[in-house]
Computed example of a mutant assay.
Amino acid sequence: MWKVEEMPGDFGHDFYNDGVTKYFVTSFELCIKRQVVDLLAEGYSSDQLDAQPVVTVEDWYSGRTDCGCTYQMTASLLDENHEVIQEFKPEPVTLDPECDDCSWKKVHHSFSDYGPGLRFVCFEHGGQDTRFWDGWYGVRVTGSSVSIEV
C-alpha cells in the first residue's frame, strides 16, 4: 500500500528541486507501482517509433534516516502485443541509515538501437522498509519520467 507525503517528510531529506513537494512512500509490505504508457495514444506515429528514438527513463528514490528500505525499478520497451523488446532492470538497492546517507538518488537509463516495433513503455518501481514497522517507513519515490527524443 502506498501513501503520498509532503517533502521532506519525517526523518527525510530535502529534494534538489524546490518545485517537487510530494513523494510516494512504501509500507512494510512490498509495494510496486506499474504504469504502461501507450505511445500511439500519446500522439507518436508508428513511423516515428519505428525510427528507434532514444527513450529515457528517470526515477528518484530515498530512505528515512531512522529506518532502512529497499528500492527496485524496471523499465521495459514493449511491442504492440506487450512483448518485451528491451528491458532495464538494475539490481535492487538496500539503504541502511547506519551506513548510507539515504538522501535522494537518481536512476537514469536511455534505450537506443532496440529495433522497430516500439508501441508501449512499461515503468515499474517500489520497495518496502527493512524493519517491517507498521506504517509508511519504506522507500520514497518521486520525479519519475519517461521521455522520447523524436
Rank of each mutant, 00 (worst) to 15 (best):
S147W: 01
P8R: 10
F111E: 06
F15R: 04
R64H: 06
V139K: 01
Y137Q: 02
T130Y: 00
C102N: 11
K22G: 07
K89S: 12
G127P: 08
T26S: 15
R34T: 15
L118A: 09
H109C: 11
F28S: 15
C102K: 02
G143R: 04
V107Q: 14
D18P: 05
K105I: 09
E42D: 14
S46W: 01
Q35Y: 08
N17E: 09
G63H: 02
W2L: 15
N81W: 01
S145F: 07
P8N: 11
L39G: 04
F11Q: 15
D18H: 08
C67N: 11
Y137L: 09
G135A: 06
R131P: 00
H125N: 14
D59E: 13
C69G: 09
F123R: 00
P92E: 10
P90K: 05
G143K: 01
L118E: 03
T94C: 09
D100N: 15
D59W: 02
G43D: 11
V84D: 09
L118S: 04
D10W: 08
V146Q: 00
V4I: 15
S147E: 09
D59N: 14
D79R: 08
H125K: 11
C69D: 13
V55K: 08
S110H: 03
S46I: 13
G143D: 13
F11P: 02
K106V: 11
E91C: 04
T74P: 03
M7Q: 12
Q35G: 10
W60R: 10
T65W: 01
C31F: 07
V93H: 02
Q86A: 11
M73H: 09
V20T: 09
E58L: 08
W2Q: 07
